[in-house]
Design a protein around this nucleic acid. Structure first.
Lengths: 235, 235
DNA sequence: TTATTAAGAATAGTAAAACTATTATCTCTA
DNA sequence: TAGAGATAATAGTTTTACTATTCTTAATAA
């Protein structure tokens, strides 16, 4: 019996990404407490927002201690960086799966758009990350990850590489359709930002958008994104 | 002599906008200390970033007290909201001047693009707001203004109306070119966001863009924005 | 001229956030 | 069974983000 419990203690379930060392003090994916930190921080940030989120509140939720949180992440900003990186790797992973045998460049790009937008509804088959809530955090909080005075320093440590690699993937797909398109990287990053912002606007500042997101249904966003991207990319 | 000093004390110089009541506790544009708060907060936020910025440091800079800062703004988030609102009203004002006698819709939209991008180089003729630094703050920090758990509450109080009115102006200009364009508001907000993000990326995460901003020269951004917008809007 | 008001300064707090350090305990593994 | 690694428990410190109160001075209105 104790054997089962002690074994359970170390079981790592589902998908796990290799993330840059600088995104944590100790990799939370590898321990039970680490996974609980991820799970509950996603719940709590979604619930009260990053500003009001503290390690003390998180520890209370988990029934652990503040000090234990600090063994995994230096501060809540690093935790946010971890969560966003994880998310972008997840999107990258979904794109690679869904475009595996697709040769038509236009179909590829459309699948990429779909993957960016619907990453939330696919299940990572790990128990500690709720992609749907994480998606909401990405929409609401992720811009804070790179809008900071420490961007350059953090960038040197490779903190943003998953985001940049995802943008590179999209840029390549754009060029596959139109090799002379002059702004593939700008369009790629703009697609990612637009996918976030337009949902946020639809939900909070509806005069800033023309789409609706009824009950989280993102199909209007997908139609619009396709319209924008295809009109721009095609000759 | 005392007369001159006491009179100087109350001189309000240059342009002044009427901003929503909820953006301050006491309108900083109306007093000497208020103007110094605006001026030095712009300098200080630009220098150390919003995260490290505190009213204590600001008071030290101004040689006033923390408590006095709180008589103008409830907290630093409200100060950020004030600065961003001021900036968007400033851009709106520039657009209205520059498009005054322009009837050709395409020329109008191009002037709008130019105004959004080059708002920084025009002088407001008031001494307490440095538009160039403020523009950098907008680029680096303004997204934090509406990415907060209190968006809905703040939106109810009309906090974001200058941004929304500016977007509405742009949307109308888009429809003037192509009345059947299906996403005028989304394109308008995306233009504003893109103008910020692409500069930020060029300066800090260059793999996310194709433009360069050498020594703050924004001409490549303008060319790209025109390309994107015109290709999308025109039939 | 004086009384009133408003602006700002000075002082002195508090509560919470954001950490850090130390020691103890517990469990797994060698 | 000893040692390593993970987590807990405890107890701090510093800084931030405020609030409250009193005092002084300047502007203004009667």
């Amino acid at each position: 019996m104790t054997f089962v419990i002690s074994k359970l203690y170390n079981v790592i379930t589902g998908i796990k990404f290799s993330l840059n060392d600088s995104l944590y003090s100790r990799d939370p994916q590898n321990t039970e407490l680490g996974q609980r930190i991820l799970k509950h921080s996603i719940n709590l940030i979604d619930e009260i927002g990053l500003e009001d989120f503290t390690f003390k509140k998180l520890a209370l939720e988990i029934e652990s201690t503040e000090a234990s949180m600090y063994r995994y992440f230096e501060n809540k900003h690093q935790l946010l960086l971890f969560l966003t990186s994880w998310y972008w790797q997840w999107v990258q992973y979904l794109i690679s799966i869904h475009t595996l045998n697709i040769d038509d460049p236009e179909r590829r790009l459309k699948i990429i758009i779909k993957s960016i937008i619907n990453a939330t509804s696919e299940n990572a088959l790990n128990e500690y990350i709720n992609e749907s809530l994480l998606h909401r955090i990405i929409i609401n909080e992720s811009s804070k990850a790179y809008h900071t005075h420490a961007v350059d320093e953090e960038n040197k440590h490779g903190i943003f590489s998953s985001y940049k690699e995802l943008a590179e993937t999209i840029a390549r797909a754009i060029l596959a359709i139109n090799p002379s398109f002059p702004y593939p990287h700008s369009l790629a990053s703009n697609m990612l930002e637009m996918a976030k912002n337009q949902v946020h606007f639809a939900q909070h500042l509806p005069r800033l958008t023309d789409i609706k997101v009824p009950k989280g249904d993102l199909s209007e966003l997908e139609t619009m994104m396709e319209f924008f991207v295809m009109k721009l990319v095609k000759d």
